[in-house]
Design a protein around this nucleic acid. Sequence first.
DNA 1: ATAGCACTCGAAATCGATTGCATAAATTAT
DNA 2: ATAATTTATGCAATCGATTTCGAGTGCTAT
Lengths: 358, 358
Amino acid sequence: MNKKKEITIYDIAKELSFSPSTISRALNDHHSISDKTIKLIKETAQKMGYRPNSIAASLRNNKSNTLGIMISRINRPFIASLISGVESRARKAGYNVIITQSNDIYKNEVDNAQALYDSRITGLVATLAMETKDYSHFQQFIDQGTPIVFVDRVPKGLNAYYVIIDNYMAGYKATKHLIEQGCTRIAHFAGAQHRNIYGERRKGYEDALLEHGFTVDPELLCEFSTLSFSEGKKATKNLLALPNPPDGIFSANDTAAVSAIMYAKKHGVRVPQDLAIVGFNDDPIASIVDPGLSTVSHPAQKMGKISAQLILDHTEKDDDDLTEIKMLKTELLIRESSLRKKGPVDLPLGKQQKADTN
Amino acid sequence: MNKKKEITIYDIAKELSFSPSTISRALNDHHSISDKTIKLIKETAQKMGYRPNSIAASLRNNKSNTLGIMISRINRPFIASLISGVESRARKAGYNVIITQSNDIYKNEVDNAQALYDSRITGLVATLAMETKDYSHFQQFIDQGTPIVFVDRVPKGLNAYYVIIDNYMAGYKATKHLIEQGCTRIAHFAGAQHRNIYGERRKGYEDALLEHGFTVDPELLCEFSTLSFSEGKKATKNLLALPNPPDGIFSANDTAAVSAIMYAKKHGVRVPQDLAIVGFNDDPIASIVDPGLSTVSHPAQKMGKISAQLILDHTEKDDDDLTEIKMLKTELLIRESSLRKKGPVDLPLGKQQKADTN
DNA sequence: ATAGCACTCGAAATCGATTGCATAAATTAT
DNA sequence: ATAATTTATGCAATCGATTTCGAGTGCTAT
């Protein structure tokens, strides 16, 4: 092996006949070292090719300059944006970011929690796996005073920060919008009901119906386990085969909503005239599908940045109270998939396209 | 603060009147500790709530059980899948994964390289920023014997592993397919030419044209800096306004290709009859846009897994030769955007849809 | 002139896990 | 029965940076 020897502060100390303490202090701009000495030491360090060993520093300081992320799967637009936000904010502050994905499996989430704990992360940003119903694997972080920020899919009642959106109101507004567009039988594609976001979106849907004089028809309420493309397709098929099919669908995500649009189109059901559809998330596919999918947009990147910031701020405080809840605004983006009435609408017109590169 | 004291192997040692050495060995199933003692120590560790401090282990072992990832931006389907593959393979082997994104900016890439180096990562998986032309920030890893796996967007001539696809052949086949579909004036949306993937795709395009008796018309060669949606739209507009507009486009990514489809549709140009289009990557939008976008699919997740595996395998060898090149197969997925001729085609029919969840 | 203070810097302990060397006991081989 | 192993464990150094005590120098104020 041809490994070059690594330069440590001891090497610099020997070179300059200083003590390692002085080197360390100089490199960290400690006030008790003269400017001249600091300059000399930094220049020498540079010249010798010194690079700090952050592992050693982490051990000594008992903190790792690392944030941990627990998510279901990276390969989803909302999640990718969330991570992106966490990473960019964290790195600006000199923190690394470790990612772990559960693939929505509870056991993976527990294992990942162990791995992140063992890495002595400074803080944790977590969205729950679809399966997760027990939260005891988070207790170790709380016991150690390691701040947790739960984002989007969150548990109830843990001593942690929360960064969420108002799912109830978003579901309410989306359904109300469909009603205003003249829909009288509105179906709902719902996710697993023990997960807060799906339960709340559904509640918003139901309340909007009830407040406008409709009833909640169980026939029109489709509960999905994953809200996948194929699940959406199958549900759409069933709905359209009903003796009294719906004329509107509010889907708890865009994937299932898009599958509904595509199925409907293929079978001669006009969107939005025969079937108006609203999704959730504003994934890239929402602005690509034809007709464009009306949907609820999350500020995903922003949620990530805020999550990272909460942790960074927390480490500078000395109290261990962290019950702050940040609820961010969503926006109902109205595209063609739900726009039946011409003329002015009292809601903002959604963006039609999104730029992206590769 | 209410932090519980952390349990270390010293605490276990005191509790059981063993030495810390014995505790350490027992927890690692060292052969020189009796089964009985191992069992006792592990049970006690469990009972006391012991959790290993991987930072301390990393310092002592001078390796971190961490892989580093350098990518342009997470928020792209190909990249997200790549990361997903690295993460899942790495975690199975007990490694953490640190992500860094450059946003295609050279300076960020250099800074991220420093941060990853300072974290003493076991290995690095990297795809280059669009801007990057100088590779000296990778030298420090090579000097230390830290393996680098370059994926997709790779530099030339560094002592590293490579995981790539045959961009030349993919570009050649895509163009040939358009020719076979009857196109006679085929445009190309090209990316920055100093980046290998875009240069190679273009070369494949040009050679396919030449070999089939066409010439390369500079008017039809559009070089993009980012291959974004808006860039694609503008280029399509220009092309269609030509006195002699193209009847086919091979785009080096899907985003620009989809923008071309949407622009053409909006302006009464029929796809594929008047304008056949092939993209690259098989992003989710490719199977959502109408007509479905023919495209070249990458095995992104697999590339990630292979990259992680190369590093894991490398750490078990003791030679420092790492010039292995893995070239993976791509597949031309033919959808409606390029399918002019009915009847049998000598290429496999692409998948029409992809499932995803949220 | 001497106490008081600011400024520079060093010695040594510390963070927690690992491991080469040494030791002692137990088992096997000759 | 004695030598040769094997088994089981401890001591102490080590990884590299940080930090608590000090200690020494030079300067100002009284």
